[in-house]
Design a protein around this nucleic acid. Structure first.
Lengths: 200, 200
DNA sequence: CCGGATCCCCAGGGATACTG
DNA sequence: CAGTATCCCTGGGGATCCGG
């Protein structure tokens, strides 16, 4: 990328990660951990292979990514971008209620959203598991020790099951939509609904 | 900008503000408050006038900016990007020690850096003023009430004067460089040096 | 001088085919 | 699987022009 030529830390950050696709590649590496070219490509629907290749060498040259036998991983400087992605994703939540039927949804995106943008409002309460189903995307949200963890997949015996359309589920989880509204939008709950209040 | 087509709040955020120059325009509007086309252009050296014009209409269409009689201002959604710029600028600080002689420096960039990336470590101490001089850029940093404020310009009777090259001054202010190193790099101090410790 | 609009040119991005 | 190579096209950079 062409430098902005400004002695400003925002401009310098954008010199490094302001190119198209770059921050999304960092997102994938943050969520998945070290992974291969093809894994990245699958997690970035729409990217051209030459672009992914170019970006990875740029990120490697900038010392934000290392590659070892075709496995790419973030360096400490690269991992330090997490607060940036959190801030950006937190800001973007307000637009997740829009309908865009053609948008792709991958389960691990839903997982990081649940983990990053919710909190356990009752840290002393016993652990609990919530099964979330939004179309093809299924994740398990685990509450406990004041932490919210999430992973793609199914739980054996969840305390609560939330099922509905992606935007409704996302809105309910992140608090953008309240329960009555979510119900009107067709969400289905089975189990201990009070766990929703615990997701502060 | 072409949409990433992903149901992910980071991707949706980048759909809106991921284009070249867009976040820097938001930076200018955040720091300066409402201003005119020409003010923005001066604060964004290197931008083409047609691009600035295009970006402003895009931002207006996205309801992040309003324009009223040729004065542009952020909306609430636009102002909500401040944490994103803080995170990005905070991350970028680590690259500010690089020499890039051709980079432009404007005083208000130094001012927001001082205000955003430092803190008053001794909130109960009486107010104090630091005059910072880095090349042509002169700012006043004001400590008091646990806040750090900064503005371009000169102070009448500063408690401390810091003078040096931009990267040295920036590094010292933000704590990336310590005082002995800054001294070796030619920084000049006059007045109450202990105020530097107060900039936690 | 301010606030753009227009034009031309080139670099960067997108889609696909191909190779070790 | 892990990329390169190629072609095409859009979007950005830079200069100039124009109405108020």
């Amino acid at each position: 990328m062409r430098s902005y030529g400004q002695y400003c830390s925002i401009a310098r950050a954008l010199d490094l990660v302001g190119d198209r696709w770059t921050l999304l590649i960092v997102r994938e590496l943050l969520q998945r951990g070290p992974c291969r070219f093809t894994d990245l490509k699958r997690g970035l629907p729409g990217i051209a292979t030459n672009l992914l290749s170019t970006r990875l060498t740029e990120l490697t040259d900038a010392a934000l990514v290392t590659s070892d036998q075709a496995r790419y991983a973030l360096t400490d400087d690269g991992r330090a971008l997490e607060p940036v992605l959190r801030a950006l994703g937190g800001w973007g939540l307000r637009y997740m209620a829009d309908e865009r039927p053609n948008d792709e949804l991958q389960a691990h995106w839903l997982a990081y959203a649940a983990a990053w943008f919710t909190a356990d409002a009752d840290p002393s309460a016993p652990p609990a598991a919530i099964q979330v189903v939004a179309g093809d995307a299924e994740i398990v949200v685990m509450l406990g020790d004041g932490q919210v963890r999430a992973r793609p997949g199914r739980a054996d015996d969840p305390d609560l099951v939330i099922e509905g359309r992606p935007r409704t589920v996302m809105g309910l989880l992140t608090g953008v939509i309240d329960l009555p509204a979510a119900t009107r939008l067709g969400i289905r709950l089975r189990g201990r609904r009070e766990l929703l209040d615990r997701l502060g």
